Amino acid sequence: MSSVTRLHHALPLSPAVNKAVTELDSVIAKAIDAAKGAGLPQGLVVAVLHGHAHSETAKMVG
């Protein structure tokens, strides 16, 4: 997913944060490729990702 937009903030992000974002992006991309390769429907992949995003958002605002 080399077309992912990088984070921008008023202050520079630390190298540790940049490394974590890059690693997270890589792992997610590999998991999506593996899921597609196993024959999971694209809608299910999207639903799982959306569910995790919703859950994490609820934790942040809760």
Results as ranks from 00 to 15, higher is better:
residue 9 H to K: 06
residue 42 Q to A: 14
residue 53 A to F: 06
residue 46 V to R: 05
residue 51 G to N: 09
residue 53 A to D: 09
residue 12 P to M: 05
residue 37 G to P: 03
residue 26 S to F: 10
residue 25 D to M: 07
residue 47 A to T: 08
residue 46 V to W: 03
residue 49 L to Y: 02
residue 49 L to Q: 05
residue 41 P to W: 08
residue 3 S to H: 09
residue 42 Q to C: 02
residue 17 V to E: 07
residue 56 E to F: 15
residue 60 M to E: 11
residue 53 A to C: 13
residue 33 D to T: 04
residue 22 T to R: 14
residue 60 M to P: 04
residue 20 A to C: 07
residue 43 G to H: 09
residue 7 L to G: 02
residue 61 V to G: 03
residue 34 A to D: 15
residue 56 E to H: 11
residue 26 S to K: 14
residue 48 V to G: 03
residue 42 Q to R: 12
residue 37 G to V: 00
residue 22 T to N: 12
residue 11 L to R: 09
residue 18 N to R: 15
residue 44 L to E: 15
residue 56 E to R: 13
residue 45 V to F: 00
residue 38 A to H: 09
residue 3 S to Q: 09
residue 4 V to E: 11
residue 59 K to V: 05
residue 28 I to R: 01
residue 16 A to D: 13
residue 4 V to L: 13
residue 54 H to Y: 10
residue 31 A to R: 13
residue 25 D to R: 15
residue 45 V to G: 02
residue 2 S to W: 10
residue 3 S to W: 07
residue 28 I to W: 04
residue 42 Q to N: 15
residue 62 G to V: 13
residue 36 K to H: 06
residue 39 G to R: 01
residue 60 M to L: 15
residue 8 H to Y: 07
residue 18 N to K: 15
residue 26 S to Q: 14
residue 26 S to G: 09
residue 23 E to K: 10
residue 58 A to D: 14
residue 24 L to P: 05
residue 20 A to N: 08
residue 14 S to F: 06
residue 53 A to Q: 10
residue 38 A to R: 10
residue 33 D to V: 03
